[in-house]
Design a protein around this nucleic acid. Structure first.
Length: 645
RNA sequence: GCCCCCAUCGUCCAGGGGCCUAGGACGCCACCCUUUCAAGGUGGAAACGGGGGUUCGAGUCCCCCUGGGGGCACCA
């Protein structure tokens, strides 16, 4: 994979080998010799407490997490069937401790607050002969593909993760980051990555959006095993083509008394809400249609009266679920109202549709933005009522704009396709997205896809939201640009230049010239879009003649005649050159500067502006060589005339 | 209003109670290199939000506060 090569090359370039000492990859040795050991410290230490192992450690050993079944007050453990494998959170142990305060007994034990648990921890720790070092995930990483090595828990089936966008526009970077992480996790464990289009909102659907979603995925190099175009065992992968499934589920729930029809009009509901708000009461459906008899409900429905179907939430108790990166989360059922699962147009809501599809498609890890956390208890309850088993939940943190608010157009960057247009490389964006919210260790920034696949686990994501740091992305893109294979880079340059220079340069571009610009330009741009403004004068016939003021610049300000003469001398010297190479040009110009008793830099700048039209360019001599003798002389003479006029 | 989530340099990450005098990266500043601009090199400034606990010892565990974000649709 190209990305792998690039990152490796990058690393070498920065001065490292296999265990590279490059700037971004090695932590400098800290000088510890000066550290005084306080008496206090000496006294302390040695007997650290037994720790509750974290997910990474347990996972690395193929062990199930602690406290798996600990905090369900009144319902079967939602995540039970899918836990015990790689996705399981160690942070849950921490979270359990929180729960321990509210829930008695079991939770307290699971939280590691009970001696028996400490012993269990001790046993777990003792089980690894290597101790700390072996426990470190970098050394104990399970084999990448389950099928081959089997070092991972054999009980764990291959994971199936999905990206389920709704076709309302181009995928946002935050959104695609979740897809990317899901893809990475699936690839790491030899599972499947699935794409499913969630188009149950007819009003918000945007024509062509699904194709752009797939294009975004492709551009980033995220391939899918099953999807709307690829098909698969659970086809179709478009929700609007799966309506009977949802309807059937809704009817089953009605028949079982777990859901009911609701005939309230939107106006009635709005009135109810505003009244609730006015009275300072919790806002939510009050369940007034619960009381409808089955007979009248059926009759009204078959008479064609519009209605929705609502799920009947339990009135009391609480619902808990485990989030793979946050641990266990519990919500009082009283704070959740009876929500709509089937709309009056016959389409399901997200709640019903995703629950049905994720079950039917055997999704093991439900990955989605963390704005879904508050409604996850509804999903758990819905799944339970349907008689199914909940998946693992992974709520990914959001991406914020520089001001800490939602990322929007206002901040410049938004959709994946726009980044492509701006000249970012897919590998760079991929790398950047992958490590905002996750890290390999305390010093690796540049990391290839393959390395990511070998080390990524979705449960290791950080729980906190991240500000999208465009500046760092640009740095990273520049770093990638500087290391991609020159021939490949020439392809990228040619494509981009042809696009940006269309109408200004003859197409196709001269390939040798494009190739020659690669070493000159690659260290000077961060994005492909900066290329044309930097080197357009190499490809266009004419340049805009610089103003005298620009031409003179600082060195020749107020010395217009001298500048004019210098330019003339340059022309003669360059015209006399035997060979038109950067070395010969440099020799001639340096000699001329000495002869004219000018600072070399001053003369160079004069030539630079005269030949290119601008004060910032790639190195002068190489640039003149590429411009060619004829065009160089012509431009120099024209500049000379400008000054003489 | 009710509920949920989050909290280490400006920003992104390290940090599994003593190896923390809190590490890396981007950005910033200085210097070096230098024909401009970059790239590169060296060095520097820069953080545990506050208060209580637990502990011999807390950035790390618990609680409260504060701050930020999100949810409470026939949207996802």
């Amino acid at each position: 994979m190209e990305g792998a090569r690039d990152a490796e090359a990058l690393r070498r370039r920065r001065g490292g080998g296999a265990r590279p000492p490059g700037r971004h990859h090695r932590r400098p040795h800290r000088n510890r010799s000066r550290r005084p050991v306080s008496p206090r410290r000496r006294r302390a230490g040695r007997l650290g407490r037994l720790r509750v192992p974290r997910a990474r450690t347990l996972r690395a050993r193929g062990l199930p997490p602690l406290g798996a079944d600990s905090n369900r007050a009144d319902a079967p453990d939602p995540g039970a069937s899918l836990r015990g494998g790689p996705s399981d959170p160690g942070r849950s142990a921490l979270r359990l401790a929180v729960a321990a305060d509210r829930a008695p007994g079991a939770a307290r034990v699971a939280a590691g607050l009970h001696p028996t648990v400490d012993r269990r921890v001790a046993r777990v720790r003792g089980a690894a002969p290597g101790g700390h070092a072996a426990a470190h995930r970098r050394h104990a990483a399970p084999p990448r593909r389950l099928g081959r090595g089997g070092g991972m828990s054999a009980r764990q089936a291959a994971p199936r993760l999905r990206y389920a966008p709704s076709p309302t526009g181009d995928p946002h970077v935050g959104n695609i980051r979740t897809a990317l992480w899901s893809w990475l996790h699936a690839r790491r464990y030899g599972g499947a990555f699935i794409v499913r289009i969630e188009d149950t909102d007819q009003a918000r659907a945007v024509a062509g959006a699904d194709e752009r979603i797939l294009a975004s995925l492709r551009w980033l190099g995220l391939d899918w095993d099953e999807g709307p175009d690829a098909g698969g065992p659970h086809a179709p992968y478009v929700q609007s083509q799966r309506l009977p499934l949802y309807r059937e589920a809704a009817e089953r729930l009605i028949a079982a008394g777990r859901a009911y029809r609701c005939f309230d009009t939107p106006e009635q509901l709005a009135a109810m809400r505003s009244e609730q708000r006015a009275q300072g009461r919790p806002v939510g459906y009050d369940g007034r249609c619960r009381a409808l008899s089955r007979e009248s409900s059926d009759a009204r429905a078959s008479s064609g009266e519009p209605c929705v179907v609502r799920f009947r939430m339990p009135d009391d108790g609480s619902t808990a679920f485990r989030d793979a990166i946050r641990g266990d989360i519990r919500v009082e059922n009283a704070t959740l109202d009876d929500f709509v699962i089937l709309k009056s147009d016959g389409f399901p809501t997200y709640h019903l549709a995703h629950v049905v599809d994720d079950h039917e498609m055997a999704i093991t890890h439900v990955t989605r933005g963390d704005e879904w956390i508050p409604s996850t208890p509804r999903h758990v309850r819905l799944i339970e009522a349907l008689g199914w088993t909940p998946p693992s939940y992974v709520h990914t943190p959001v991406i914020l704009g520089p001001d800490g608010g939602k990322l929007s157009k206002r901040h410049g960057a938004r959709s994946v396709l726009e980044y492509a247009d701006e000249g970012f490389l897919p590998d760079a964006l991929f790398n950047f997205l992958a490590i905002t919210g996750w890290s390999l260790d305390d010093h690796t920034e540049l990391i290839s896809r393959d390395e990511l696949i070998e080390n990524f686990d979705i449960a290791d994501l950080v729980p906190n939201p991240a500000v999208f740091d465009t500046t760092k992305l640009e740095w990273m893109n520049g770093a990638y640009l500087r290391t991609v294979d020159p021939a490949r880079l020439a392809d990228l340059f040619e494509e981009r230049l042809a696009q940006d220079l269309s109408g200004r340069a003859a197409l196709p571009l001269e390939r040798p010239l494009v190739e020659a610009t690669v070493p000159l330009a690659r260290e000077r741009i961060k994005r492909l879009s900066e290329l044309a403004p930097l080197v357009d004068f190499l490809f266009t016939g004419e340049i805009v003649a610089p103003e005298p003021g620009t031409l003179l610049g600082k060195p020749y300000r107020g010395r217009r005649p001298e500048a004019e003469r210098a330019l003339g001398a340059c022309c003669s010297a360059l015209a006399a050159l035997e060979s038109w190479t950067s070395e010969a040009i440099e020799g001639a110009l340096r000699a001329l500067a000495a002869e004219l008793d000018e600072r070399a830099g001053s003369l160079f700048m004069l030539c630079r502006v005269a030949a290119t039209g601008r004060p910032i360019t790639p190195p002068l001599f190489e640039t003149l060589e590429l411009i060619g003798r004829e065009r160089t002389l012509a431009r120099l003479r024209s500049a000379q005339e400008t000054l003489g006029a």
